[in-house]
Design a protein around this nucleic acid. Structure first.
Lengths: 163, 163
DNA sequence: AAATTTTGGTCAGTACTATTGACCTGTATT
DNA sequence: AATACAGGTCAATAGTACTGACCAAAATTT
């Protein structure tokens, strides 16, 4: 059983933990830098990218579902969302079942922008995956999933399988 | 050679890439939430944590070295740094060799705060490591390192080995 | 049918992070 | 002496996010 958790009490030594923490910081810093540059052109920020990403991945999400994913207040999302709607990247439609709910999806322009923003990220991840190999990718998945709040791990796992 | 990169052209399929991107977002979101709560007590933000972390890891770093690591402007760092110095968490000392340089290190209070901020992160990473196992951790390292800008990968790798 | 809850939106005020640009003091190098 | 570098500072701007207070429409509960 190569994938069984280590029982060694000294296994994650403090230095290993600090390295893992730092790697996450550096990877995230560089990972977000490419789309950040593109967003500047549009006078958008990282929050716009996050909204575009999750609306693109989950068409017809409601605002409150998006709030739960992004973990921000509705006031914060509202600003970003209305800018995206005003500029024609996101469309709202009323839910026919529950007409209070506004279902969100990307417009054609929104889909285009999503592809443009994610292209450098996909390229970066693809390169890292290829260089590290499939086995390393499985470990990357396992550890990152373990870093997510336990309460949300299932929801995230399900969201990853759905699309 | 289980760690050799896959040669399969279809290996990182688009869906896998998008999952890898999303996992990084969720992991980073939850990873930063614990220290963020503690920082609020001190009326500090995430930038203060980052400065404390890297000064703690690299005692006697100069300001410009810190700027290069954090990738922010000196004006941004200056505000954060002078607050940390005013409140007694960071101390400055002149370099005896090049007296233009201010070498930064944590005070006793700074070391204490660093431990307090990193404790929940270390616990989170330790749990994820234990659950995933040593082999998965190796993959996590490999992929995250591959996500870092090529130009900085060596510098980061060296920084991780130094302390 | 009336009361309550849910969903979504809005206004106002505040805080943190980060940016660009300009300008200044020292110190080191050439 | 001139130039370059390390660091600090002032001012203005932008993006993200927060709390708190309200409001309206629609759904659910009583």
């Amino acid at each position: 059983m190569p994938e069984s958790p280590s029982k060694d009490a000294s296994f994650p030594r403090e230095e290993e933990l600090r390295e893992g923490i730092e790697l996450l910081f550096f990877a995230y810093r560089d990972f977000t830098s490419d789309p950040d540059d593109i967003l500047t052109e549009y006078h958008f920020g990282r929050a716009h990218h996050r909204a575009i990403h999750f609306i693109g991945r989950n068409p017809d999400t409601s605002v409150s579902e998006l709030l739960a994913i992004l973990r921000i207040t509705k006031q914060s999302l509202s600003r970003v969302l209305s800018q995206l709607i005003d500029r024609g990247f996101v469309a709202q439609a009323q839910d026919t079942v529950d007409r209070r709910r506004r279902l969100l999806r990307l417009t054609e322009a929104g889909l285009e922008l999503e592809r443009r923003l994610s292209r450098p990220q996909r390229a970066r991840v693809a390169r890292a995956y290829r260089e590290a190999g499939a086995e390393a990718v499985a470990g990357y998945y396992k550890v990152l999933t373990g870093l997510i709040d336990e309460a949300e791990r299932d929801r995230v796992a399900r969201a990853l399988e759905r699309p």
